[in-house]
Design a binder for these strands. Structure first.
Length: 302
DNA sequence: AATAGTTGCAACCGCTCCTAA
DNA sequence: CTTAGGAGCGGTTGCAACTAT
């Protein structure tokens, strides 16, 4: 909206935080609670902009943050969620409550992307992320969230038709599509929802619902959404990352999504190496630290 | 031991969304 | 209805630490 940057004031300190600054910030937040960040610099005397304070708190000082050493379970969950949601780190982070979005994002960029690359998966180029970008630039969240819903539905219908509705069909499929495309095909049918859900408001809930579809019966509960932030508010929409246009970075006209996507995606290919890795026995037996988002055999969704 | 190259993390920047006036 | 401001998200950058030569 053309506003000048919030930190343009002179005298605003940048760069690494000192322990003293941390202390001041922590004491302030302990006393007043997080929020109203704009008031923080003035009330504390910190020479930092409000954004910087918020970031420091959420990414570093907030209690309960786990740092470093991502477990294999966490890794898999991140990869899977990334495929589902695209680069919607805040949404992904809401399923790993002791991890920050920044941490997850960094871990993805520095470790997982490489790892997936060596496994022959698309890594970041992976449609999820890519599409997340394109989707983001293509339409406001509200719109593409709804589009996602439509896209998924349309794609699944097309797929069913293509597969003659045979759920047991061994999925014959040629040269593996990109992982996110596979992921898309595996998306569970969104739980039946009242018309009001069209608003797609509470995305954390929706994500949980979405992921419930991945659960084998009786495998525990889907995650709770933790942060009440907007991150969760846009969670499901991220799924659009997996479904929205795959056509590079150019903004995509409205019409270009759904059906063509279904056609593009084609029938579900056999699991790739990555897929197998993601779905191997390690997953779904739940590491307590994770949000209990087990992943089921994708074939179940058809 | 010194230097160059690489990696990983913390922080910043720019943008979008939401909401109150 | 419009607009301005606050909050938050995702991408990118800067730099310290580490590794290879």
């Amino acid at each position: 909206m053309g506003r000048p940057p919030c930190c343009e004031k002179t005298g605003v300190k940048k760069g690494p935080w000192t322990p003293e600054e941390d202390l001041v910030l922590v004491s302030y937040v302990q006393e007043h609670g997080p929020g109203n960040w704009r008031a923080v610099p003035t009330n504390t005397g910190l020479m930092r902009c409000n954004k910087s304070c918020r970031l420091r708190w959420t990414n570093y000082l907030r209690p309960g943050i786990k740092r470093g050493n991502f477990s294999v379970q966490e890794e898999k969950l991140i990869i899977h969620l990334q495929a589902l949601l695209g680069n919607r780190w805040a949404a992904i982070a809401s399923y790993l409550p002791d991890r920050t979005d920044n941490d997850i994002k960094n871990y993805w960029n520095t470790h997982l992307k490489k790892k997936l690359g060596t496994m022959g998966a698309g890594g970041d180029g992976a449609g999820g992320a890519e599409a997340a970008r394109t989707g983001r630039s293509a339409a406001p969240k509200g719109q593409w969230e709804r589009r996602l819903q439509t896209d998924i539905h349309t794609a699944r219908q097309a797929l069913r038709e293509a597969l003659s509705l045979d759920p047991a069909l061994p999925l014959p499929l040629p040269p593996a599509k990109t992982e996110p495309q596979q992921m898309l095909m595996q998306l569970p049918q969104p739980a039946p929802a009242p018309p009001s859900q069209a608003a797609y408001a509470s995305s954390a809930e929706n994500i949980a619902r979405l992921l419930e579809g991945w659960m084998r019966p009786g495998t525990g509960s889907a995650g709770k959404a933790s942060s009440g932030s907007r991150s969760s508010a846009s969670a499901v929409s991220g799924g659009e990352g997996a479904s929205a246009s795959h056509s590079g970075t150019a903004p995509t006209p409205e019409g270009s999504t759904g059906t063509s996507k279904a056609e593009d995606a084609g029938p579900v290919p056999a699991f790739s190496m990555l897929e197998s890795w993601l779905l191997d026995d390690g997953m779904g037996h739940g590491d307590a630290g994770l949000m209990g988002v087990p992943l089921a055999d994708p074939c179940e969704f058809f």
